[in-house]
Design a protein around this nucleic acid. Structure first.
Lengths: 148, 148
DNA sequence: TTTTTGTCGATCAAATTAGTAGTGTTTTAG
DNA sequence: CTAAAACACTACTAATTTGATCGACAAAAA
């Protein structure tokens, strides 16, 4: 399950992407626009900043902006920051591998094998969808239809 | 994330599938074989029985068996019983749809759209992988390679 | 009728989630 | 210089979920 935190983060990043280059958006604005608790959103934006996806400016007329072009930021990056690995189970994760305590033989484990398939499919979509894709409704479908 | 419960359920079903037709396997046996807490496993098996995936017999020499052929039971069915919908977010679920409280326009929501893609991809794998597939190591890959 | 096994309800500790509150620290306007 | 506005950071908390465990009960077979 995607946490609220990750969902809010995605929505915030999309909101930031609507701004033109260099224009800052304040946490309170994003919170109101996206219907998200303001203080909670601040924590999220802080986290995104620490991971280099967002830059911030303090003081009056401060705010946030994307730290990189919208087409260089993927859903996968954001979700991994907020919720951790995409894999349904740690033993099937690339970025956060951990052995199952109860697993006798990992090589032959069908659960792991299938969860790896699920992870790969999810990663293909999430690492292949950028904030820029999210901006135009239908943009990603168009891309997908073209086989891009 | 797949819960421990769902993981144990999958492992238990796979263990049951190794038995020949009509042969019962006891909870304690499965627990030991699969390295799963016995009492916890009993709850899981009970739940699987109530959902018609497993049948049970009480008393001495009792135990559990699959209620259907192994190739008629999918990972998706088992996971939905244990953990609920496959979708990362309720608004992208087919089996457990719920609106996001904070969503202004669901039609144009890119988060939802992308999570639906993830759901569809996961469902395709999990509803397409049966307990029978899980039995032979590599069996599913072979199937997949053939485009089946 | 005793033993073995599934059934079922209650309970529980730890972790996670989804926040809230409050204080500090910059920045800018005036 | 100072007040206001904004981000930064720490701490706390309430509710829920997770991952179990315990014990009494019911059935089936030897």
């Amino acid at each position: 399950m995607l946490s609220q935190k990750a969902k809010y983060a995605l929505k915030a990043m999309i909101a930031l992407a609507t701004q033109e280059e260099g224009n800052l958006l304040q946490a309170a604005d994003i919170a109101e626009r996206q219907n998200v608790p303001r203080k909670f959103l601040e924590l999220i934006l802080l986290d995104l900043r620490k991971h280099g996806l967002v830059r911030s400016q303090r003081g009056k007329f401060g705010g946030y902006a994307l730290a990189k072009p919208a087409d260089a930021i993927t859903f996968g990056q954001i979700i991994r920051i907020m919720d951790g690995p995409l894999a349904p189970i740690p033993c099937a994760s690339l970025t956060g591998y951990r052995r199952c305590a109860d697993c006798r033989d990992e090589k032959s484990c069908a659960v792991r094998r299938t969860m790896r398939e699920v992870r790969d499919a999810a990663a293909a979509i999430l690492d292949g969808t950028t904030i820029a894709d999210a901006l135009g409704a239908g943009a990603h479908e168009a891309r997908a239809a073209l086989g891009a």
